[in-house]
Amino acid sequence: MNHIYIENSSANRAMEVLQLKNVSKVYTLGEERVTAIDKINISIKKGDFVALVGPSGSGKSTAMNLVGCLDIATTGEIYLSEVNIQKLTESDLAQIRGKKIGFIFQTFNLIPSLDALENVALPMMFQNVPRDIRIKRAKALLEQVGLKERMYHRPNQLSGGQRQRVAIARALVNDPEIILADEPTGNLDTKTGDEIMDILKELHKKGRTIILVTHNPDLTKLANKVFTLKDGKIVGA
């Protein structure tokens, strides 16, 4: 995979973890063409806490999918740590997702048949990390998010807040460049939501790059950069 790092690397983007250049996403629904994202430019530096806000239908989910390498832009270029992901194969994209992006979802998205420890360790399996190291790292991370006593519980045996902590531990396990949190508090009560936001704040302090996708303006207070999307365009930054 080394070629990916060599290709497209240039000095002037050294600090940029993520860059979207003139990125558009057009869906074709039958005869109709829907522009979900319209020529947006976003630049995120290492250590940034970025909020991507906008009402539903604004294109923020599409933007998140593009940033998370879950989808490919129709036009424009996306650079993730200097790599133009537009040019990657499906398999390489999967590798990039596993290695460089830590996802935190609104609905937690844990695997129901696996316990907390196995859920956290799973992304390392797809990166061919040896088993003993996987277990060690997963245990350490679960301890950090305060779930030492709950390692062997399955998701349905955990509360919403606990599940989201497991998801955070899972997001961190491959030491990603970016943590991509999509409405991480959306399914939680205020108190638990605050606790999760505290963890994100803590991670930011330790130098993590965080992209928070939300429709809740309150959550954007933590961010040092806010991109507001409307009708597929950035209307405020």
């Binding site: 879950l70 499906e90 999967a94 997702r97 992304p123 797809f126 491959n174």
Partner: peptide, 16 residues
Amino acid sequence: TKEIGIMKAIGARNKD
């Protein structure tokens, strides 16, 4: 399906 989506999001390739 959702589980497959999750696995793909966290780095599973098609062949996995």
